[in-house]
Computed example of a mutant assay.
Amino acid sequence: MTISEYVPQAPCGALDPAAALFHSLSDPTRLAIVQRMAVGEVRVRDLTSELGLAQSTVSGHVACLRGCGLVQGRAQGRSVYYSLTRPELLDMLAAAEVLLSATGNAVSLCPNYGLDAQQTRQAPEVVR
């Protein structure tokens, strides 16, 4: 089923799977993991060194992507090699790049999700 089939007659709840898909890709670390997997299989250990993040952080993000059905693991000896399950994901990301280019990256100015909003959410609270 396509998103166009949901609109306009479908209630907003019918879009929940699409919203969940986009939410799963909304984290910059998960996007970096997906982009790395576009090149080929990778172990969590490799992602940890490439991204400069803790193993637990990378494992959590890989688990999220795996739970969404976007990533799969292949055991080889004591290692697990992760890869993308759907090539369509790369098509979607390429389409997003085209859209970002066409809009001049205007989404970065969005008050809810743009760069300023991200910095506000990540700023530590001052305790007095």
Rank of each mutant, 00 (worst) to 15 (best):
P124R: 08
D91F: 07
V80C: 08
L70S: 07
A123R: 13
P8H: 08
L84S: 08
V71T: 03
R66G: 09
Q122E: 09
D91N: 10
P17Q: 06
L15M: 13
G104V: 05
V34N: 03
S59I: 00
G60E: 04
F22D: 03
H23W: 11
V71S: 05
A94I: 02
V44L: 01
V71H: 00
A32Q: 15
A94F: 04
S101W: 03
V107R: 07
I3D: 06
Q122C: 05
A106R: 11
E125N: 00
P17G: 04
R74T: 14
A18V: 15
D16S: 12
Q35W: 06
G60R: 01
E50C: 00
A14L: 05
L21F: 15
A95G: 08
L93A: 10
S24Y: 06
L15P: 02
L15Q: 02
I3Q: 04
L65Y: 08
V42M: 14
A95T: 05
C110A: 15
R45F: 08
R78K: 13
L93N: 07
L89G: 03
A38Q: 10
L31K: 05
C12Q: 14
P11K: 09
R121V: 05
S49N: 09
L89P: 04
A95C: 08
L25Y: 08
A94R: 12
Q119E: 10
L84R: 04
H23C: 12
G77H: 06
R78L: 11
Q72W: 07
T2Q: 12
S108R: 07
A18C: 11
E88T: 11
G114A: 09
G77T: 05
R30E: 06
Y6F: 12
S79Y: 11
G69N: 07
L70N: 04
A18Y: 15
Q55E: 14
G60V: 03
Y6T: 09
C64M: 14
R78Y: 09
L53P: 00
E41D: 12
P8M: 08
T85G: 11
P17K: 02
T57F: 01
Q55F: 14
G60F: 02
